[in-house]
Amino acid sequence: MSTPIPASTRYYRRGVTKVLWVPTIANKQTPSRAELAAGTSLEAETGAMDGWQTTSETVPTPALGSRFTSVVGGEITADDSSLTFWASKNGEDVRTLLVREASGFVVWMDEGDVPTQTMDVYPVTVTSQAKVREMDNAAQIMCQFAITSEPAENVTIPALTGP
């Protein structure tokens, strides 16, 4: 009999997931605690998110000697991604932080900022700050991002520092 996959400890994302804007990370595969601490926590003002996942294409590899066409892994891509924030009536909100053409990293700690758990590090450039204008909803700002190189996925969250 085969071994079953371990049972997951399921969770509700809101109140758990942390998302950071980090201006500088020397090595996206091994961000330091100091680099993460220099970032800005975004989850308290995040009202929606879209994208933030990679996909892999396949490439057909036909052979004359077979009618079956096998495939191999091909391009890895990431769709355009966005974060939508609550707008402030006085204008002091995400617009002062995530300005168009700012480059940095969006870091996702899906299970929270827990050392030894994993995070995903997305190198990005802010491409727009769109004001979401709707009649019956609270005002929001949607920041769109270009993912500029392959994200570092499932990177270990570093230990906390200090007392």
Rank of each mutant, 00 (worst) to 15 (best):
S2Q: 07
T3V: 14
I5P: 03
I5Q: 14
I5W: 08
A7I: 15
S8H: 07
S8L: 15
T9V: 15
Y12D: 08
Y12K: 11
R14M: 13
G15K: 05
G15Y: 09
V16A: 12
T17C: 14
T17L: 07
V19D: 01
V19A: 13
L20H: 04
L20N: 06
W21N: 00
W21K: 00
V22C: 00
P23C: 08
T24N: 09
I25T: 07
Q29C: 02
T30M: 01
T30Q: 01
T30G: 04
P31T: 05
S32V: 04
A34L: 10
E35S: 07
L36W: 01
L36Y: 04
A38D: 10
T40I: 00
T40W: 02
T40G: 03
S41N: 13
S41T: 12
L42H: 02
E43M: 09
E43D: 12
A44L: 06
A44N: 10
E45I: 13
T46N: 02
T46F: 01
A48T: 09
M49P: 01
D50H: 14
D50N: 15
G51Q: 12
G51I: 14
W52S: 04
Q53N: 15
T54K: 07
T55A: 12
T55Y: 10
T55N: 13
S56I: 04
V59T: 08
V59Q: 01
T61Y: 07
P62W: 05
A63G: 08
L64Q: 06
L64N: 11
F68N: 12
V71D: 10
V72T: 11
V72D: 06
G73A: 14
G74T: 05
T77Q: 11
T77W: 01
L83H: 03
T84N: 09
W86Y: 15
N90R: 06
N90C: 08
E92L: 13
V94F: 00
R95P: 06
R95W: 07
T96R: 05
L97D: 09
L98W: 01
V99H: 04
A102P: 01
A102M: 05
V106G: 03
V106N: 00
V106Y: 04
M109F: 03
E111H: 04
G112A: 06
D113G: 10
V114S: 11
P115L: 03
P115S: 05
T116G: 09
T116F: 14
T116S: 10
Q117E: 15
T118V: 15
T118D: 07
T118M: 06
D120T: 15
V121E: 01
V124D: 10
V124S: 05
V124A: 01
T125C: 10
V126T: 04
S128G: 12
Q129H: 02
A130T: 14
A130W: 01
V132E: 08
R133K: 13
E134C: 11
E134Y: 11
M135Y: 14
N137Q: 15
A139H: 06
Q140T: 07
I141A: 04
M142Y: 01
C143N: 13
Q144C: 08
I147C: 09
T148E: 07
T148Y: 08
E150P: 06
E150Y: 05
P151G: 08
A152Y: 02
E153W: 02
E153M: 14
V155E: 00
I157R: 04
P158K: 05
G162F: 06
